[in-house]
Design a protein around this nucleic acid. Sequence first.
DNA 1: TTGAAAGCGGTACCAG
DNA 2: CTGGTACCGCTTTCAA
Lengths: 337, 337
Amino acid sequence: MTPGKRYASSTDVARLAGVSQSAVSRSFTPGASVSAETRRKVMAAADALGFRPSIIPQIMLTNRSGLVAVIVGGLRNAFYGAVLERFATRLRDAGHQVLLVPVESDYSLDTVLEELRSYRVDAIVSGLAVLSQEVADALSAFRIPIVSCNTSVTSDWVASVDSDNRGAGRVAAEWLRRCGGTRFAYLAGPEESPASRDRLDGFRAGLAALGLGEPRVVIGDYSYDGGRAAAARLFAEAPADAIFCANDLVALGAMDAIRKRLGLRIPEDVMVIGYDDIPSAAWDSYDLTTFDQDPEGLVVQALDLVREMSENGPARGRVRVVEARFIPRGSTRNPTP
Amino acid sequence: MTPGKRYASSTDVARLAGVSQSAVSRSFTPGASVSAETRRKVMAAADALGFRPSIIPQIMLTNRSGLVAVIVGGLRNAFYGAVLERFATRLRDAGHQVLLVPVESDYSLDTVLEELRSYRVDAIVSGLAVLSQEVADALSAFRIPIVSCNTSVTSDWVASVDSDNRGAGRVAAEWLRRCGGTRFAYLAGPEESPASRDRLDGFRAGLAALGLGEPRVVIGDYSYDGGRAAAARLFAEAPADAIFCANDLVALGAMDAIRKRLGLRIPEDVMVIGYDDIPSAAWDSYDLTTFDQDPEGLVVQALDLVREMSENGPARGRVRVVEARFIPRGSTRNPTP
DNA sequence: TTGAAAGCGGTACCAG
DNA sequence: CTGGTACCGCTTTCAA
């Protein structure tokens, strides 16, 4: 790569303004003691040279870069887009810069972390779940505040913000039952996803509490195509009439398979519930009953954890749970009283 | 905030290893001349201290931060998510870090740019169109390579990568005509969007070339709700049977309005064409005829422009055009021979 | 209020 | 191959 262009430095400005370099620095420091006349001269020279103080030397002095890394694992799902945008906006409003880090799995995390460390990032927020205690401990060794979403594993420097996945699973079971469901099924996400597992756990618990048996479970991959395929597999074996899906994309794929391929009606023949409340869920063609994960709350809690750890240091086992709001729509029937 | 000496320095490592600080630096520089023994001692000490060279002093020396800012204006549209993810992945593969900057309009751009400059970002990629020559010139004054998408305005340091919007508009006109369309309409994006305007220009030109009159135009906002509302307004005035939409979200909203609210059939009564080929366009419920903007090509061209400007400096008026691939699906009828 | 000088943590060049 | 030293650009003492 090319040498790198030279920027005007405070020394250049000082020379042009006929003052000391310190005076220039002070002119750009709010509340520093500079005479109005000196500041005027400095600002004039700065404008002429297009000078703006570099933040790099500051980082060297303070070890605080103002950089917060946000790790995402695929933006295909509109829900992650929404969350990412909120993170970015709020972090910038709080005076931070956002380093976007796309990764494929949590195993590449420690490699990536090495880089982030060399940039002296102040904290890391991960939309990707940390899967094992080993990884969590490895991350913790970097002594940087890390907040992960929908992870049950924590460590000294690794905290978590979870949606109330279990609670939502129970609500789904109860609602489907009240609306007349009899043959229950769960279309899961990837096997290793803690969120998908927790939603299933809650669904199971809810059914059990109602004296109902185990739901049938089909493993999928959090995608539309996966949902379509999972629904096909489900019905190839035996029909179901009350399906809870690991997320909205899966639910939408399942709905299309059920209506277009199997020729069944929703909600008359089959009821479907999703998770996330992505924009498409509300579209006329789907009108999907789902859970609003409260991305705003998720982001607020995550950033609050970051702040807390930055100020007070490590905090083993910190987990915040954000309520999921149930949104009944037309993909489920009305409850019978 | 606590500054805290969180990081071990090369001096710390040198002391522990009983060598000079220079030796530590060399041990971490590929191809530097260090004896195996010295390197071993250094690495042992570095491991013990959790040392990793900071990149900050390097930035000071070279004026190259490795940071590339990516500006996005809303991730609601899945297309932007796909583009952003590609940018991020490719930039990281090329050894850069990605600074994510969400902005509302191009007018906030120069404020944001001040910050980016203090971080010594190497280049800026913007998914947001630059709207006026004034803004382009203001941006150019920062003397940082800037590549913007779907912008017709360029300047010394501002280049652009455009989808072939006009060409696609013509293709849409021809296809709708060949499939028996008679009453043409365009559901536009925001009035100031160059991409939306170019697509309309091409659509108009295509119709004119076929000896057909002006399409009716309804202004919208690139969203699903906007598309639904626009379709309602269009039909409230008079029916249409061949509708080209500024993007897929608008098209999907229009389709739902046409089918669910107006009770018309697609494609028998009304044909619809979109733009972007977002995932939802291929879903069974829509099966939308559209144009693939070739996000991969867009990203490759944009990054190539960045590289070119970084190496050769300003390049007034550089514009790259990426072909859009037409994808006929079920929202248009079959062409009559 | 002002200027001189130290120091942050690396890289690169020097002499040995 | 090795250690000493200058240097990047800023903030922050310290003395004047």
